[in-house]
């Protein structure tokens, strides 16, 4: 029983991170119907931005909440900028192009960033600066709840709550929702569609930045290909929850993290990655629109 609760805790931790990244996929999809494969690389660049900025700021010499918040701000800024640039240079020129062209461009951008990362940062893994100290907080029998575990879940929830507030309770959020509903009617209402799409990229990429810092603290090994697998899994999480749906991405991410942990714990680690993609196939067969997705009949 103790083991089971520990597994649940581990799984929720992993799931919270998947959820953060899944939100980025789902937001862009909601507005552009585009699967932004480069999102995982935005996350990778966020992690490296902290690695390099630490060389100047020496944040890891004074681990604590101040350093942690500064790191999050840096990662969020860098990721937003990268997200914006990708949107401006790669996706906006293709706004009127068929969806497939944009999708292939997204894959191209993703590979370009992965391998440029290998060329610029080097392919060897690096140690993510420890800007926050991990402490043993609560202990029930054998179960350990550490400050990192609570930080990850807490910060993820806070970031998601902030996103929810921005989308549902501000004028800007209303405009984004309008663009998601219908791009042409939104522009007839005087909404600057391009600006709203840019904003979506900024918001999604910011979450990737937050995710990068949290993952960096928990698994301090970073390398240019670190986004590849976590990105794919977050994408599956987004599809599992219903791509385009924000609560769906969160639930999908948590489910994904939990089931992965349980598979490794009670079956075998060999099935760890197989599970993620097996789930994808099962969902697409039985619920093509995901758990929270709306099923829409496409009229020909």
């Amino acid at each position: 029983m103790e083991d089971f609760l520990q597994h649940v805790l581990n799984g929720l931790n992993l799931g919270a991170i998947y959820a953060l990244i899944a939100l980025g996929y789902t937001m862009v999809y909601g507005v552009l119907q585009l699967i932004n494969f480069a999102h995982a690389e935005v996350y990778m660049l966020g992690a490296f931005s902290i690695y390099y900025s630490n060389k100047w700021l020496h944040l890891s010499d004074h681990p604590g909440w101040t350093s942690f918040v500064i790191s999050i701000l840096i990662a969020v800024m860098v990721c937003s900028l990268v997200g914006l640039t990708i949107e401006r240079l790669a996706y906006r020129p293709l706004r009127g192009a068929p969806r497939l062209n944009v999708l292939i461009t997204a894959i191209g951008v993703s590979l370009f960033l992965q391998f440029s990362g290998q060329a610029v940062f080097g392919a060897d893994p690096k140690l993510f600066p420890q800007v926050l100290q991990d402490k043993d907080l609560i202990q029930f029998g054998q179960i350990q709840i550490r400050s990192f575990d609570l930080t990850i879940i807490g910060v993820s929830l806070a970031a998601m709550a902030l996103l929810h507030f921005l989308i549902h309770h501000t004028k800007m959020g209303m405009a984004i929702r309008a663009v998601r509903h219908s791009r042409s009617s939104a522009s007839l209402m005087g909404i600057n569609v391009d600006l709203m799409i840019s904003l979506v990229f900024v918001l999604g990429s910011s979450l990737a930045g937050v995710g990068a810092v949290l993952v960096g603290l928990k698994y301090p090994k970073i390398d240019p290909l670190m986004g590849m697998l976590i990105g794919l899994k977050a994408f599956v999480a987004a599809v599992l929850g219903g791509i385009g749906s924000l609560p769906g991405a969160v639930v999908g991410g948590l489910l994904m993290g939990l089931s992965e942990e349980m598979v490794v714990a009670y079956l075998s680690s060999t099935y760890r990655d197989a599970l993620a993609f097996g789930l994808l196939i099962v969902i697409l067969v039985f619920r093509p629109s995901g758990l929270f997705g709306k099923y829409e009949v496409e009229k020909v």
Binding site: E2, D3, Q6, H7, N10, L14, Q142, Y219, K221, L229, E261, M262, V264, A265, S269, R272
Partner: peptide, 14 residues
Amino acid sequence: GDTDFKAQLTAIRS
């Protein structure tokens, strides 16, 4: 290439 080993380690711990 795995980065998360907590599931295996939790099993070992018990």
